[in-house]
Design a protein around this nucleic acid. Structure first.
Length: 139
DNA sequence: GCCAACGTTGGC
DNA sequence: GCCAACGTTGGC
């Protein structure tokens, strides 16, 4: 199983919105970036991901699961763009902020730190475990 | 609200 | 195929 991070502006699509969709989940649509799309193409059913709020909040707020492999993005006719479907699994006990992450040496190579603009990113198993611990959950 | 970093576009 | 110009994202 692989681990990922999905970034969203809460004013556009928040963790609460995602949770409200329940087990039906929702398309992670609107991605118009090749790197991000390529990562989504690599995702498998059951892969886990962090749900991260960008902009003002800047924190990991929940855990999601991939429930549909990459398929055409329904918000565009442009066949270049694809997306996966994800559903909310659980909320964090404690949001893990970007500041928190930057304090941890073992997390200094996270894509979130290295390339803050990428909206869909891979997360290593070690990074996953550390952030889950900081969030007060078991992952 | 500003600006740095990055990706994309289009002219050559 | 290069590179300048431009647009967007997201941290600060």
């Amino acid at each position: 199983m692989a681990y990922w991070l999905f970034k969203s502006e809460p004013s556009t699509w928040s963790w609460d919105d995602q949770v409200a969709k329940g087990d039906m989940g929702e398309e992670w649509d609107g991605v118009r970036n090749y790197q991000a799309r390529n990562f989504m193409r690599q995702m498998a059913l059951g892969d886990r991901g962090f749900f991260y709020h960008s902009q003002k909040e800047r924190a990991v707020v929940g855990i999601v699961e991939v429930i549909a492999k990459a398929h055409p993005d329904s918000t565009t006719d442009d066949e270049r763009w694809e997306c996966v479907d994800i559903k909310a699994i659980k909320s964090v006990k404690t949001p893990v902020t970007l500041d928190d992450i930057k304090q941890v040496e073992a997390l200094s190579e996270m894509v979130l730190v290295r390339n803050s603009r990428l909206s869909v990113q891979p997360v290593t198993e070690e990074e996953w475990a550390i952030v889950c611990e900081m969030a007060g959950i078991s992952g």
